[in-house]
C-alpha cells in the first residue's frame, strides 16, 4: 500500500516537473539561434573577411612587421601581467580567507572595482597620474622614465583590468575549504612554504588554473584601458586589439580581420583549455565517488 502510493507520488511529481515538449524545443531553439546569430556568425564573418583576398594576402598581413610587433607586445603584456595577477590573487585570497581584520569587506569590494569601472576610466586614471600634467608625470620625465605611451603604461592598465580574476576565483574556494588541513600540516612539522605548496595549492589548483586562463584571455584582448594609455605608435605600442582597430580605420580590412582571427583563435584555445580543465576536474570527482560506491 505504502509502496504503491509512493510510486504514484513519484510519477505525478515527475510529470509536474517536466515541461511540455513545445516549451523545451522552443527554448532550445531560441538559445541555439541566439548563439548562432551573435557568436558563430560573427566568428565566421571574421574568417570570411580575413580570407577575402586569399591565403597570401592573409599571411602577408599577419607577417607584416607592424602586425608581428603587435603580437609580440600582446604576448609580452600577458607574460608580465598574468604572473603578477596570479601572485596578487593568491595573496589576496589567502589574506581574506584566512585572517579576520578590519575593513575586510571593503577590501573585497575594492578587488571587484575593476569589474565595475569602465576600462576607459582605468586608462584615464593612468593618464592623470603619469601624464605631462599629472601627479607623477613631471617627476617621471625628470628621471627619464617613460610610462605613458610606452610599454609600462600598457602593462599597468592591463594589470588594473585583470587583477580581480584570480582573486575572485580563489576567495570563495579557499573560504569553503577552510583552514584545518593547513593547521594539520603545520602541526606535523611542515613549514609555511611546505604547507602552501603541498596542501593549499593542490586543493585550489583547478580554481587557480581557471582564473589564470580567464585572466590571460582578458590580458590579450583588453582594448579600452590600453587604448587610452598606448598612444597608438605603430610597431611600438600597438597591441593586437589596437592594431586591429588601426588597420580597420585605414580600410585595411584583410589586415584587421586577420588580426581578429588570431585573437579569436586565442579565445577558442582558451575555451578549449577551460573545458578540458573542467572535464578533468569532473572526472577526478566522479572517480572518487565511484570508488566510494564500490565499497
Amino acid at each position: 500500500m505504502n509502496a504503491i502510493s509512493a510510486t504514484s507520488f513519484l510519477a505525478s511529481k515527475k510529470l509536474t516537473l517536466t515541461d511540455p515538449d513545445w516549451v523545451r524545443y522552443a527554448l532550445t531553439g531560441l538559445t541555439l539561434s541566439i548563439i548562432g546569430l551573435f557568436l558563430i556568425l560573427p566568428l565566421l564573418t571574421v574568417l570570411i573577411e580575413a580570407f577575402a583576398k586569399g591565403w597570401s594576402a592573409y599571411s602577408a598581413s599577419l607577417t607584416h612587421p607592424d602586425a608581428l610587433a603587435a603580437m609580440r607586445l600582446t604576448l609580452l603584456v600577458a607574460l608580465v601581467t598574468v604572473p603578477l595577477t596570479t601572485v596578487f590573487g593568491v595573496s589576496a585570497a589567502w589574506a581574506i580567507a584566512r585572517f579576520d581584520f578590519r575593513g575586510k569587506s571593503l577590501l573585497i569590494t575594492l578587488i571587484d572595482l575593476p569589474f565595475s569601472v569602465s576600462p576607459v576610466i582605468a586608462g584615464l586614471i593612468y593618464v592623470l597620474i603619469f601624464g605631462a600634467q599629472g601627479w607623477l608625470g613631471p617627476w617621471a620625465a625628470d628621471h627619464d622614465i617613460k610610462i605613458l605611451f610606452a610599454v609600462p603604461g600598457i602593462i599597468l592598465a592591463t594589470l588594473f583590468v585583470t587583477f580581480p580574476f584570480v582573486a575572485r576565483e580563489l576567495i570563495p574556494l579557499m573560504q569553503e575549504i577552510g583552514h584545518e588541513e593547513e593547521e594539520a600540516a603545520l602541526s606535523l612539522g611542515a613549514s609555511g612554504w611546505q604547507t602552501f605548496f603541498k596542501v593549499t595549492m593542490p586543493n585550489v589548483k583547478w580554481g587557480l588554473l581557471n582564473g589564470v586562463l580567464l585572466c590571460n584571455a582578458r590580458a590579450m584582448g583588453e582594448f579600452g584601458a590600453v587604448s587610452v594609455v598606448s598612444g597608438h605608435i605603430r610597431g611600438l605600442t600597438n597591441t593586437l586589439p589596437l592594431h586591429i582597430e588601426v588597420s580597420y580605420n585605414e580600410y585595411d580590412f584583410v589586415g584587421a580581420f586577420a588580426g581578429a582571427s588570431v585573437l579569436a583563435a586565442l579565445a577558442v584555445v582558451t575555451l578549449v583549455f577551460k573545458t578540458v580543465l573542467e572535464w578533468k576536474q569532473e572526472q577526478a570527482l566522479k572517480a572518487a565517488r565511484q570508488a566510494v560506491e564500490v565499497h
Partner: peptide
C-alpha cells in the same frame, strides 16, 4: 612536537 587530531579529521584530501 605535538600531535593534533581535529574534530573533522582534516585529512589531506588530495
Amino acid at each position: 612536537q605535538i600531535g593534533f587530531v581535529f574534530q573533522h579529521y582534516a585529512l589531506f584530501r588530495h
